[in-house]
């Protein structure tokens, strides 16, 4: 351990997450806020993929696809962990429906107010 390039992807995750939070907290444009939410989703997905990565003794690790008859042990030795990849797929689908709903809301808000500027969309008090 200790190689700087091994940590780099994790740093990227944290950075993406932070940028997403920053966009949501500071930006006043609905579309930019939606982009912030997408960044958070993507950072988490990236982290999940990284969690599943493992370097086998044989060198390169492969995608978890079975193309010929393999024993479970052989499969385990040569491929990355398939579970997080399944989780990421599900998370992406969920992220997609959330973002789709957000975009619909943003379009409807634009119809009502004629703007995406959050400072001018302020009917609620709290």
């Amino acid at each position: 351990m200790g190689m700087i390039h091994e940590f780099f992807p994790y740093v990227l995750c944290v950075l993406l997450f932070a940028v997403g939070l920053y966009a949501i907290a500071v930006k006043k444009n609905l579309i930019k806020i939606i982009i912030g939410v997408m960044l958070i989703h993507n950072a988490t997905s990236l982290f999940l993929v990284l969690v599943g990565y493992r370097m086998p003794e044989t060198g390169e690790s492969a995608a978890p696809i079975i193309t010929r008859a393999l024993s479970g042990e052989e499969f385990f030795r040569q491929s990355v962990d398939p579970v997080p990849q399944a989780l990421v797929l599900t998370a992406i689908v969920i992220g997609l429906s959330v973002v789709a709903l957000m975009v619909v809301m943003a379009v409807r808000l634009h119809e009502k107010y004629g703007t995406f500027d959050l400072t001018r969309i302020r009917k609620l008090r709290g």
Binding site: I24, A43, V98, L109
Partner: peptide
């Protein structure tokens, strides 16, 4: 407009929670 606004706010905060 109020309902959309509330829903959008709820969506954003809830999306952060999901993250």
């Amino acid at each position: 407009s109020e309902e959309l606004e509330a829903s959008f706010k709820y969506l954003v905060l809830s999306a952060i929670a999901s993250g």
